[in-house]
Simulated scan of single mutants.
Amino acid sequence: MNHAPAMHGYRRSLRPDCLLTFWLNYQPPLHWPSLLGFLSARCIAGIETVQAGVYSRSVVVAGRHAVIQVSRARGHRLKLTLSGVPAAALPGLIARVRRVFDLNAQPARIEAQLGTDPLMARLIAVRPGLRVPQGWDGFEQAMRTVLGQQISVAGAMTLAARMVVRYGQPLSSQVAEAAGLSHVFPVPAAVVDEDLSVLGMPRSRAATLSTLARALLAEPNLLRPGADLDSWVQRLCQLRGIGPWSAQYLALRQLGASDALPLGDVALVKALRLLEGPEVQLADRARAWSPWRAYAAQHLWVSLS
């Protein structure tokens, strides 16, 4: 169900504790194994799980704790199950889930253009319909991005889980029955004045996390799309501890900028050189992938799995 008007009929009688199911359409193809695999590798203990092909996570919607579950359904649809969501918040929440799973993408158009590059044509043939997953929330994605600077994905998720336990709120008992979910992700105010180095990271990285939390408290729209990607990246790089890699990665994951590309990413360079040889330069090759460089990056990252 994608139609907001269909919700109006039961808004007054819908109880917040109701379990609701929606089917989200998308333009095929969609490479579900890669999408679920990406999310599974980046699950933060306490707020996310992937079990038996179902992605579950805790969220805060209109000030209430809720749980969403997403799985593949028949046809060109995903199944979305919601618990604890106020009726008035349903359209916005469904739109957010569509964004996180990149369901509004037009794969035929993207792959027709990206596939003019021989390397990308090969990668598209292996994973047609590959999507670029987006961050659930600007603050959460900012924390994930900084925690992931110069360490492995597993190491970053360990730090994120510590942050959740120490600074996140316990999940409301009304929706806490979902297996493996115990908290909601912290809000900026909960960490802004804390010494986050106690979580086990360098003080410089902890300071960057605090800087971002402070910046987002002062300007909640900081991580929303601007008029120009380059200007947005330059503006973000003015924050202490945020360089081009972090800014481009945030543009890719949070803004949904289709042409964002973190050129300094070690994994991207590794993937490209494994595919095309040790001398190839990412910056040179990436010119052929515009305006879909984010999708090219996603293909390169998953080629390493």
Rank of each mutant, 00 (worst) to 15 (best):
L252P: 08
L261Y: 04
W245K: 02
A260E: 08
R253W: 01
D228N: 15
P262T: 10
A247Q: 06
P225K: 12
L255H: 01
D230I: 03
A227Y: 05
Q234R: 15
Q238F: 02
V266H: 13
A227I: 05
G243S: 08
L261R: 09
G226Q: 11
A251Q: 02
L250H: 06
G226A: 07
L252W: 07
A257R: 06
C237E: 15
Q238I: 04
P262I: 05
V233K: 12
L236E: 00
Q248K: 06
A257S: 13
D230M: 05
G226C: 07
A257K: 02
L263F: 13
A267R: 13
S246L: 05
A227C: 00
G243N: 06
S246A: 15
Q234P: 10
S231H: 13
L268S: 09
A260L: 01
D259S: 09
G241K: 01
G256H: 03
G241V: 09
I242C: 02
D265T: 13
D228F: 04
L239F: 15
C237H: 04
L236P: 08
R235K: 14
A247M: 02
G264V: 12
G241T: 05
V269E: 02
W232K: 13
D230N: 13
V233Q: 12
A227G: 15
L255E: 00
I242D: 01
D228Q: 14
A227R: 14
V269Q: 14
A260P: 12
L263G: 04
C237L: 00
R224K: 13
G264Q: 09
L263I: 08
A227P: 01
S246T: 15
L261W: 04
V269K: 12
A260R: 00
